[in-house]
Design a protein around this nucleic acid. Structure first.
Lengths: 119, 119
DNA sequence: ACTATACACAACTCTGTGCTTGTAGAAGGT
DNA sequence: ACCTTCTACAAGCACAGAGTTGTGTATAGT
C-alpha cells in the first residue's frame, strides 16, 4: 500500500494489462470528460452544476459521468433529486499535469524555432 | 525547464488546451501503441524488430509509429534501409506507471471484495 | 542496371463511440 | 394526487480512427 510506486512494470507487458491501460487512457482522452474532471477538481458537484459549467446537454454530461464512474474515477452521492459527483482517483490529476508538461515543452520548442528563424 | 513542475494548472482549463490534452491521451490510448512504447522502453529499435515483437503487419506498425512521431513522443533515425525509433518524451512511461497504479489498486479492491464475501 | 529489402503513404472498409432526441424513474413542492 | 425538477437510459445518426491492401521510394547487394 505504502509502496504503490516504483512498480518497475514487467517488460513484455501482458496483453490484458495493455488493454486495461489503453482503455483507461481512452476514458480520459475525451475533451468533455477532461472538462468535467477539471470542474471536479474544485470539489464535488451536481450534474446540473457540471452541465452549466461545461456547456453541454444534461444527457451528454450524465453519459460522460457514467463512463468516468464505470472506470472508477469518480463516485456518486445521491441527495434528494440531485446527484453529487466527486473524484476518487486523484491519479487523473497527476496524469493531466504530466501531459500538460509534455505539451508545454513541445509548444516551447516550436516557439523557439519561430524565435530563432524569425529574427 | 526549472519551473516545469508544480504547474497548478489554471482552473477553467482553456478549450484548446483541453483539446491538446485529450488528443495526447488518445494517442497513447491504443493497445498497439502501448505495446510499441513498451518495446521501446528497452531502447531504440527498427520497424522490423518492432513488427516482430508486437505481432502486427509492417504497415500497421509503421502507421502507429507515425502517429507517435507526429505527437512528438518518438523520434526517427535512418540508417541504410532501416529506421530506428526511440522514445524522446519519457513522460509516457510516467503516465503508464500512474495508470498501472490505479488499475492495480482497483483490481486489489475487487479482489478484496471476493475474499471478504467468498469465505 | 537490376533485383531485393525496408519503410512509408494512400485509399478503402468497418468497428467503435460521441452527440442528439425522446423518455422513464425518483424525489420534492403544492 | 398532480406536477415539476433532476437524473439516467435507449435508439439513431454521424464521424473519427484502426486495420488491410496496394503501391511508391530509398538503399544495399549482385
Amino acid at each position: 500500500m505504502t509502496t504503490a510506486d516504483a512498480p518497475s512494470l514487467p517488460h513484455p507487458l501482458p496483453d490484458e494489462l495493455v488493454e486495461l491501460i489503453a482503455r483507461r487512457f481512452r476514458v480520459i482522452g475525451e475533451p468533455m470528460r477532461i472538462k468535467l474532471l477539471d470542474q471536479l477538481r474544485l470539489g464535488e458537484a451536481t450534474v446540473l452544476a457540471l452541465t452549466d459549467a461545461v456547456g453541454a446537454s444534461q444527457q451528454n454530461v450524465s453519459k460522460h459521468l457514467g463512463v468516468l464512474h464505470d472506470a472508477g474515477i469518480v463516485a456518486r452521492r445521491k441527495e434528494g433529486t440531485q446527484v453529487y459527483y466527486r473524484v476518487v482517483d486523484a491519479g487523473v490529476f497527476e496524469l493531466c499535469e504530466t501531459v500538460c508538461g509534455s505539451v508545454q515543452r513541445q509548444v516551447a520548442e516550436l516557439n523557439a524555432i519561430f524565435e530563432g528563424a524569425g529574427r
